[in-house]
């Protein structure tokens, strides 16, 4: 057991898993000597050598496509994208090759690649170092999509991802890489893909979030509790598949829902949750489902505080839904 940050938990998990399974290879820009720009792959090159820790040419298309080929062969490639903002150059590989391989070969071939890398704002990264582009991937059938918010979950989910037969998009909120610490057990354990985590039980309203916004939602919940509102907070942890059962159980209890995410509102993940709730739980709802999200603009450099869901906005939305 050790106190680890999210980045630290990912780093030690990669090491542990690579020691156990020599089919795992890590590839990406600057993942070797540099240890990745956020040091998630630090020390891997030294321990596992350049055949398994591959500093690649600057080409996301080749990184993802080559990883797919390795996976078809039977290796377990973990491809790092330096920032998810740069994955679009390799998007065709993900959408046309990786996501659809199983389907288009009638299940004969599979490409269980993990594509991992940082997402999220909050570091003054501007337009191309801050985006939260999960919707593109969730919308693409064949990909599983994970966004951990805690070091423990990051480890358990990464191990689950490695056991998957399907390609996994693993998004790491960079704003919380080093800001939170948690006890993380040594050795192998898993956190199931497709299972949400109820972080805090409550009766009046359900706040659903994932990634860095989980922490802001918890803070907002605490503030709301000071005003005698009992808030349930759910961390989705995986977006595809997502845990509809946990959401429904909670909403049946509270009847009120606030969804919080960094990605823009229009067709963001909150839209899917709201639609599912409209289909499956309409009669339990006592207030409109509200979303607190990033704005429907590119991610700005200036004033990013107001682009992202603010603590105040989340809290006010909780109050609004409760007082509806």
């Amino acid at each position: 057991m050790a106190e680890l940050t999210l980045a630290g938990a990912l780093n030690s998990t990669l090491k542990e898993q690579m020691r156990k399974d020599d089919r795992i290879v890590v590839l990406g820009e600057d993942v070797g000597r540099r240890g990745g720009v956020f040091l998630v792959t630090e020390g891997l090159l030294e321990e596992f050598g350049p055949e398994r820790v591959i500093d690649t040419p600057l080409s996301e298309a080749a990184i993802f496509g080559v990883a797919a080929g390795m996976a078809i062969y039977g290796l377990k490639p973990i491809a790092e994208v330096q920032f998810f903002d740069f994955a679009f150059g390799g998007f065709d590989q993900i959408v046309s090759q990786i996501a659809k391989l199983r389907y288009r070969t009638g299940g004969q071939f599979k490409a269980p690649v993990i594509i991992r890398g940082p997402v999220a704002g909050g570091i003054r990264g501007g337009m191309f170092h801050s985006q939260h582009p999960e919707t593109y991937y969730v919308h693409t059938a064949g990909l599983k999509v994970i966004v951990p918010a805690f070091p423990y979950d990051a480890k358990g989910l990464l191990i689950s991802a490695l056991k998957q037969e399907d390609p996994v998009i693993f998004m790491e909120p960079k704003s919380i890489y080093r800001t939170i610490k948690q006890e993380v057990p040594d050795g192998e354990f898993t956190v199931p893909i497709g299972k949400a985590n109820v972080l805090k039980e409550g009766d009046d309203v359900t706040v659903i979030s994932y990634g860095a916004m989980v922490h802001r939602s918890l803070e907002a919940a605490e503030e709301a509790e000071k005003e005698k509102i009992s808030v349930e907070v759910i961390d989705l942890r995986t977006l595809m598949p997502f845990d509809i059962e946990t959401i429904l159980n909670s909403v049946k209890k509270t009847g009120r829902v606030v969804i919080v995410h960094e990605a823009p509102k229009t067709l963001g993940f909150g839209a899917e949750i709201a639609a599912q709730l409209a289909e499956k739980a309409l009669l339990y709802l006592e207030a409109p489902i509200m979303r607190v999200t990033g704005q429907d603009t590119p991610f700005p450099l200036a004033n990013e505080h107001y682009y992202l869901p603010t603590l105040k906005r989340i809290k006010n939305t909780i109050l609004k839904v409760v007082n509806f």
Binding site: T297, A302, N303
Partner: peptide, 18 residues
């Protein structure tokens, strides 16, 4: 910069949701 500039230049005109 004023916060409004977050919303400028996304499109040539500003749709209702923005």
């Amino acid at each position: 910069l004023p916060v409004q500039t977050i919303f400028e230049d996304v499109y040539s005109d500003m749709p209702w949701h923005l």
